[in-house]
Simulated scan of single mutants.
Amino acid sequence: MKKVHLITCIACFLISLSYAQKKADLQDINTTWAKFYKAFETLDYTLMAEIHAKDLVRVSGGRRIIDYDSYINNYKAGFERDKAAGQTSNISLRFFERLCNDSTASERGVYKLVRNKGTDEEQAYYGQFHVLFKKRDGKWKITMDYDSSEGGTIGEDDYNKAFAIDDFDKFLN
């Protein structure tokens, strides 16, 4: 009986290891998020193009669904308009769910977009997001990006309740 119990415990442990998220995968995904942040800071749409898959599905909550080309062209036009107007953008993410294996990830959380930070025209915008990643050619690419302000109900409190991008321990099994 002890032998059967020991074998069962070992089997359960090995199965749990096969499903456990790895900190290294989350850190690797964060390299993609770093480019996302940098795209906003520098108003560089080419960084957005680099981190999104060509078969991207982009959903703007309650409004529309667009493809990769439309999404990137919208950023190109918007970032160029912002540069010409002297506007700035900083985005940050906090998470309430991060699930991944070695090839697929699902991440949900709250974003905060600050326009014209540190000026009299500073404005902050909040929304929830859900992003799906696929690892392609060794790099994490965003294949689905959904966000919504949930009718304007997402705010600073929601943002603060979620976990920081580098708070990996909250998401390890």
Rank of each mutant, 00 (worst) to 15 (best):
K2V: 12
V4M: 13
H5W: 11
H5D: 05
L6P: 04
I7T: 09
I7Q: 08
T8G: 09
C9K: 11
I10N: 09
C12L: 15
C12P: 07
C12S: 15
F13C: 10
F13Y: 12
L14E: 03
I15L: 15
I15T: 14
I15H: 06
L17C: 15
S18K: 09
S18P: 00
Y19G: 15
Q21F: 05
K23I: 12
Q27R: 06
Q27G: 00
D28V: 06
I29M: 12
I29R: 05
T32Y: 04
A34L: 08
K35Q: 12
F36A: 01
F36R: 02
F36E: 06
K38S: 12
F40I: 09
T42I: 07
D44V: 08
D44A: 07
Y45F: 13
A49F: 04
A49H: 06
A49G: 11
A49S: 11
E50Y: 01
E50P: 01
A53K: 04
K54P: 01
V57I: 15
V57R: 09
R58N: 07
R58C: 01
G61E: 01
G62S: 04
G62V: 02
I65S: 09
S70L: 14
Y71S: 13
I72R: 05
I72Q: 07
N74G: 14
Y75I: 14
Y75E: 12
A77T: 13
G78M: 10
F79W: 08
E80N: 15
E80Y: 13
K83S: 01
A84H: 02
A84T: 07
A85C: 10
T88F: 05
S89W: 13
S89K: 14
N90W: 09
N90F: 10
N90Y: 12
I91E: 04
I91W: 08
S92P: 00
S92H: 00
L93I: 05
F96R: 08
F96G: 09
E97L: 14
L99Q: 11
N101E: 09
T104V: 14
A105W: 06
V110L: 00
V110T: 06
V110G: 01
Y111R: 04
K117C: 00
T119H: 01
D120P: 05
Q123H: 13
Y126L: 06
Y126E: 05
Y126F: 14
V131I: 15
L132C: 03
F133C: 08
K134Y: 13
K134A: 10
K135R: 13
R136S: 03
G138Y: 00
G138E: 04
I142M: 08
I142Q: 02
I142N: 02
I142F: 03
D145I: 04
Y146F: 10
Y146A: 00
Y146C: 01
D147I: 00
D147E: 02
D147S: 05
S148I: 04
S148K: 04
S149N: 04
S149V: 01
E150W: 03
G152S: 01
D157I: 06
D158L: 08
D158I: 08
Y159P: 03
N160H: 02
K161H: 09
A162D: 12
A162F: 11
F163H: 13
A164N: 13
I165F: 02
D166T: 14
D167V: 08
F168T: 05
K170H: 15
F171I: 12
F171P: 09
L172Y: 07
